[in-house]
């Protein structure tokens, strides 16, 4: 029996689901192995009978929270897809301000009071609402890693994320260290799995895959200081995908 798979999205850019579509002809193989029963971005067909639910996006409103809990109830395995779902991603940046403040900045004095569509609370990653079985991090996800997780689930092997920093992939790819190009990089504290794609194009890692289980933050800050980066600038960049109240 093919496992039944469903995709759902919350507050996000839907780029991670698009990355799945970007598997191109490999999707044809994929639908031989799993049965996709719901994928709103690309399909009209829908069923609530599924084994594996992939969730993109973060949770912004009570109505989203309810919908997510329902999905968790239906799914045997729930997988967080992408930075917004895994860690809140850029959506969490607004948590620096109160909900009223950001609403006013965006919707001005429009009458949205009491309208449940606009009823936001501070952004949550999905594991702040339901239990998550597996994570596919990144902004966007890496389609190769997605395919790997799916094949692991299909063959009965627990998917595991690399527990080493992006530097490892940079070295294997013989990238020039972006610090040597005078750029800021979070690679040493960020979980690998992206194949160091940003440094490969001479841009620093922004930490979109989330930090390692045991990131050496103090050592990282020492290095950044050595390269003349100020603490407030550091925090702005540490926070980009990994917003945290207070200082890292």
């Amino acid at each position: 029996m093919k496992p039944k798979v469903a995709f759902f999205d919350f507050a996000s850019c839907e780029g991670c689901q698009l990355e799945v579509i970007n598997l191109e002809e490999k999707i044809i193989d994929l639908i031989d192995v799993v049965e996709i029963v719901s994928f709103r971005e690309a399909m009209k067909e829908h069923s609530d009978e599924y084994d594996i639910a992939f969730i993109e996006g973060s949770i912004q409103r009570p109505m989203d929270e309810e919908r997510l809990k329902k999905i968790r109830g239906n799914a045997k395995i729930l997988v967080a897809l992408g930075a917004c779902a895994c860690i809140g991603g850029v959506n969490k940046l607004r948590n620096e301000w109160s909900v009223d403040n950001v609403k006013e900045e965006v919707y001005g004095d429009a009458d949205i009071e009491g309208n449940k569509l606009f009823d936001a609370f501070p952004t949550k990653a999905i594991n702040e609402v339901v239990d998550v079985d597996f994570y596919i991090p990144g902004c966007p996800i890496n389609k190769v890693e997605f395919a790997k997780v799916v094949s692991h689930l299909a063959i009965g092997k627990t998917p595991q994320l690399p527990n080493y920093p992006v530097c490892v992939e940079c070295k294997k790819n013989e990238n020039i260290c972006v610090f040597e190009l005078g750029k800021f990089c979070l690679g040493p504290v960020t979980r690998a799995g992206c194949n160091a794609i940003c440094p490969q194009f001479q841009d620093g890692c922004e930490g979109c895959r989330g930090f390692l289980e045991d990131p050496k933050m103090e050592a990282q800050k020492d290095v950044l200081r050595k390269y003349g980066i100020r603490l407030d600038d550091m925090m702005k960049r540490f926070n980009m995908f990994n917003y945290k109240k207070g200082v890292y």
């Binding site: 607004r94 609403k103 900045e105």
Partner: peptide, 8 residues
């Protein structure tokens, strides 16, 4: 869901 880009 609104995401408030201009705010953040």
């Amino acid at each position: 869901a609104p995401r408030f880009f201009e705010a953040f």
